[in-house]
Every structure is written in structure tokens, then in C-alpha cells.
Amino acid sequence: MKGVAVKALVLADFYDLQVLEVDRPTLEPHDALVRILYTGICGSDIHGYTGENGRRRVGQIMGHETVGILEELGADVAPRGISLGSLVTINPLVVSAEDLLRYPGREQHAPSMWVLGVRADRPAAFAQYTVIPAANLVPVGELDDPRVGALIEPLAVAIHAVARALEKCCADSALIIGGGPIGQMLNIALARVGVNSRTQVEPHEARRSVCCSLGACAIDPAALERDILAGRRWPVVFDAVGASQTLESALAAADVGGTVCLVGMHSPTLTVDAYAISTQERTVVGSFVYSRMDFDAAAAYSVEQGARLVPLIDSVVSLEEAPAEFARLAADGTAAAARVLVDMTPPLDSL
């Protein structure tokens, strides 16, 4: 209902997030209205806050890792087993109905694809309410802890990357460079498919501790250099950072004929040793977001194994505390050992 005021976290300018009152978004015939409970602060949101990645705009309401309550369905939405009041997460990759048919299993390649939280003219999940095509709702009513619903999107990123990397090879061990939130999700996604020997490289002790709790052998970059010099190699390596230095390390650590999967997006342009690819016949695989199948798999895993994901929640801040938290994370990207969530629900004394 247009004209109803709700609170949102608005990018008033780069490095300037403000909690403002905005109109509740209008429900179109094929849409769903979701009351947001929790939204995760993604690294791309931090880069949007600083203006570094060029993928966010001043005036925008960001947020794409989220969970909430289904409040209302548009007039043309056919019932499909999700009732009002259900706990849902949102697949933020929106694709036209025609492209859903043309790009099954690879919807992220569709020309019509846009992302909630990236597209500037669509208020997203750092608001108390958001609107999304109903086809993008995924029910998660069986979650023991609703906060886990805000972790499903980054888990889908990792599930997709693991599927890409293992598409043409089998591996009983893997190396992950980077122990931040996406690296942590890669750890879980590899365990999910039976890759039980996992080594994770991370310079920060608190993050290494999280990675160890997930079953990885967590080491610092100096230890990786020693391992490489001693001749240790891995059949598949994931670069969860996406910088020239980490890609160089990934190639050096990969077996001859091995696979390197580039997941991290730290830098848009990287310097690469071409001979480390060609003369050693290594394969470099890019991975970006996920298919609908990947997202649904992440949701199903989260319902079944939600307790494994709870340790990946570093902290929860209120909507009013969120601007300061963005500033803290922008000043030090390792200030949080894992994912920070924003509690979008109004305080009890305001109800």
C-alpha cells in the first residue's frame, strides 16, 4: 500500500548510510510482499557503500541476503504451496518468464536477469518490507533458527562454484584461499559433496578459527608458501578473494592439469601468469552467482543442516546500528570473523 511509511537503510551518499522512512513498496499483480526479518551484510554491499565496485547508486536501498515473512501476494499469483505468514527467503536473481524457459539450469546467463539489491531502482532487503516476483520466493518454514535464512544466498554461491569446479574432475581434497564468508561457505559446500580433506588459507586468526570449526585445516599464507615450496599440490583450488596475488598462489598450488576456480571479486582486473596455465595445462574456471537449482539446494541444505551454519553468524545488529556497522566493516574488512546480520524488525517499544 503506497503511502504507508516503513524504515529502510538508504545509501544517501557513498560512506553515508541513513535510516529513513520510505513508502512501503507497491505490490504488482505477479509480486509478493515480504516483511524482512534479517538481512546479511555482503562484501559487495560494503563495496557499494564505499562506491568501489560501481555497482550501487546513491539513493539506493541495498540488501540481497535475506529472510522474512510472506505478507501479501499479487492478484495474479497462482497458489503454489506457500501460505501467507510463511517464513521465506528470496532468490534475488530475477529473470523474465520467457528467459526462465530459455535458460533452464543457467538462469544467471539470461539477458533479462537483474539482481535485487544491485538494481538501483528496486528497493531491496535493507528495508522493513520489500517486493519481489512471487516466483523468487523459496519457503524455509522448517528452519529451527530463522537467521539461517539470511545465509542461504551466499551458500548458493558456494554450491554453484563447487559444482563448476568439479564438473569435469573428481577430487578428494581441495584448497580454499580466503577464509571470509564466501570461503567459509565453500568449506561447507565441499563437505556437502564429500570432499573431506580441505585446507583453507586465511591470514586472520579469528577467521582461521571459524574455518577450523567447519572441519578445514586452516593455515596462514606463509604456511601455504612453505607447502608449495615443499611440493604440495591440490587437484582443485578455489580463490575466494579474487586478487592478483591470490590467483598467483592458487595457480602455484594447483596440480599439473588441476583446476582453479575464481570465485572472489576483489578486483575487476587481475594480472595472471599465462604460462602457469598453458604449460601446466591447468584449467581456470569462473563462477558467478548461481542457478535456481543451486539456490534451492542451498535452501534445502540449510533446513536440514542449519545448526552447521549458525556459527557463521558473527553478530546481529539493529537497523539503527547498521550505519555504524557498515563504517566499521569498510574501515576493516576483517573486523568480523563471519557474516554480520541486520535485524530489520522494529524494536518492541515501537510496536
Rank of each mutant, 00 (worst) to 15 (best):
G3A: 01
C261V: 09
C169M: 15
Q18I: 06
H160K: 06
T89S: 10
A276Q: 13
D314W: 05
E71Y: 00
V10D: 05
I177N: 01
L251S: 03
A125P: 08
D16S: 12
G63C: 13
L11V: 09
V237Q: 01
G85R: 09
V193N: 13
R56L: 10
W114N: 03
C211N: 13
E28N: 15
P221A: 11
R292S: 06
R147H: 05
G117S: 04
E98M: 06
A276T: 06
V6I: 15
T89I: 04
G74T: 07
I228D: 01
E21C: 06
V148Q: 02
A222V: 04
V272P: 04
A243W: 10
P133R: 02
V67L: 14
I219Q: 01
D227Y: 03
H47K: 15
R80Y: 12
G51V: 08
I46L: 13
A327W: 07
V241R: 03
E142M: 08
V342E: 12
A75K: 14
E107N: 08
N91D: 15
C212H: 12
L73W: 05
I90Q: 00
A120M: 01
D45F: 03
P203D: 07
R106I: 00
A307I: 01
P133I: 01
G333P: 06
E202Y: 01
P346V: 02
P139A: 04
I228E: 03
N136D: 12
C170I: 06
R106K: 08
S350M: 09
R208I: 10
G179C: 02
I69N: 06
P111T: 01
P139I: 10
A127I: 04
G68W: 02
E71Q: 11
T283E: 13
L84K: 14
E325A: 03
T279P: 00
A120D: 14
L166P: 02
D349E: 14
A5L: 12
E153I: 09
A134N: 10
P133Y: 04
H266T: 09
A324L: 13
V316M: 08
R119Y: 06
V77R: 09
L70N: 02
I61C: 09
Q184L: 15
G48Q: 09
A274G: 11
A324G: 15
L101E: 14
G63A: 14
D349V: 15
D239L: 00
Y49E: 10
P133G: 03
A324N: 14
P311I: 02
E167C: 02
P79D: 14
L214T: 10
D239H: 00
Q128H: 07
V317W: 08
S291V: 11
N91L: 07
A338T: 09
V241E: 06
H30I: 12
V340M: 01
S209N: 11
M293F: 13
Y103T: 00
S86Y: 05
P29H: 11
A222Y: 07
